[in-house]
Amino acid sequence: LRLEVKLGQGCFGEVWMGTWNGTTRVAIKTLKPGTMSPEAFLQEAQVMKKLRHEKLVQLYAVVSEEPIYIVTEYMSKGSLLDFLKGETGKYLRLPQLVDMAAQIASGMAYVERMNYVHRDLRAANILVGENLVCKVADFGLARLIEDNEYTARQGAKFPIKWTAPEAALYGRFTIKSDVWSFGILLTELTTKGRVPYPGMVNREVLDQVERGYRMPCPPECPESLHDLMCQCWRKEPEERPTFEYLQAFL
């Protein structure tokens, strides 16, 4: 395994491009020591290896001592969030954005069929390849993070704006909380990567959403798509659509 080009840095580690087995181009995620327990990670990795779908980033291998390494397929255009905010983002029109959403829903419909939960679905965790191919990455890892700023769910590192209220408040993460996050991801797509709930801080978002506030229809977004977002944001988790439905609708 060779680490060649550093692609990015996040709160919990770095991402590199490299070569595996001398020939395969891969992405390598390294986790800061202390982010998660190697034992817990190894268990999760076994499950992650079983998830194989064309719209999920394929896991190739893991190094399960500290520092933990995760070796996955390489996606040339990086994260969907950076892609939307970058040069190419300007030229993306609604049909392409909807197609990308459908690809993500397709990957998540598979996660749904496998009775698995992602827990951290957002544009930053979707990767883009050639020809606007989108794949879901980092599934299941969020559960293992041991950082206090994260586990408190009120901490600075927790993605509260993407998280369903029952998950943020009571830790009830299910495929239905993933559906909520998918609704937020749809706003990221239609606004080219704007942060959700602009002008609001995490605490406010939690309070307002509890009181029934939902983001309005983004500019140039059809009402039918906003309606779909609002279905994803129904207060009762069981009233939210399935990913199978979302995939078919898109």
Score class of each variant (00 low, 15 high):
135 K>S: 13
56 L>V: 14
71 V>I: 08
213 Y>V: 06
118 H>M: 02
61 A>N: 09
159 P>T: 01
180 W>C: 03
229 M>Q: 09
12 F>C: 02
25 R>P: 12
172 R>C: 09
163 T>V: 02
143 R>H: 00
101 A>L: 08
202 N>M: 06
111 V>Q: 04
247 Q>M: 03
118 H>T: 01
149 E>Q: 10
79 S>E: 03
151 T>S: 07
46 Q>H: 10
66 E>D: 14
33 P>N: 13
163 T>H: 02
195 V>W: 11
120 D>A: 00
5 V>M: 15
219 P>V: 11
13 G>Y: 05
115 N>V: 05
196 P>A: 04
148 N>C: 07
18 G>T: 09
70 I>N: 03
27 A>F: 01
215 M>D: 04
154 Q>L: 09
168 A>K: 04
176 K>M: 11
140 G>D: 01
140 G>I: 00
184 I>P: 00
20 W>A: 12
231 Q>I: 12
137 A>I: 00
23 T>S: 09
247 Q>T: 11
222 P>A: 08
77 K>S: 11
106 S>Q: 10
39 E>F: 12
13 G>D: 02
173 F>R: 00
155 G>P: 06
138 D>I: 03
140 G>K: 00
171 G>S: 05
6 K>Y: 15
233 W>T: 08
43 Q>M: 13
29 K>F: 02
80 L>K: 00
110 Y>H: 10
54 E>W: 12
132 L>C: 07
30 T>F: 15
21 N>W: 15
174 T>K: 14
22 G>H: 11
183 G>K: 04
213 Y>G: 05
60 Y>L: 13
136 V>R: 01
230 C>H: 14
43 Q>L: 07
110 Y>S: 06
38 P>M: 10
211 R>S: 09
149 E>L: 08
212 G>T: 04
172 R>S: 13
102 A>S: 10
33 P>Y: 15
44 E>F: 03
55 K>H: 13
218 P>T: 05
10 G>K: 00
71 V>R: 01
64 S>H: 13
35 T>H: 11
184 I>W: 00
110 Y>L: 05
134 C>I: 10
82 D>E: 10
191 T>I: 05
218 P>G: 07
173 F>H: 04
71 V>L: 06
150 Y>V: 02
164 A>I: 00
169 L>M: 10
18 G>D: 04
160 I>K: 01
245 Y>L: 12
176 K>R: 12
162 W>T: 02
240 R>N: 00
210 E>N: 09
51 L>Y: 03
240 R>F: 00
71 V>M: 06
202 N>Y: 04
246 L>A: 09
244 E>R: 07
70 I>R: 01
174 T>Q: 14
186 L>M: 07
77 K>A: 11
38 P>T: 13
214 R>D: 01
78 G>D: 06
116 Y>T: 12
58 Q>I: 08
66 E>L: 15
48 M>V: 00
237 P>F: 14
70 I>D: 02
161 K>H: 00
6 K>S: 13
215 M>R: 01
44 E>D: 00
65 E>H: 11
182 F>E: 01
20 W>M: 13
200 M>Q: 08
246 L>K: 04
158 F>D: 01
70 I>A: 03
128 V>T: 06
181 S>V: 01
221 C>D: 03
143 R>Q: 04
187 T>R: 07
209 V>M: 08
165 P>Y: 10
173 F>G: 03
76 S>Y: 12
87 E>S: 12
203 R>V: 14
208 Q>G: 10
6 K>C: 07
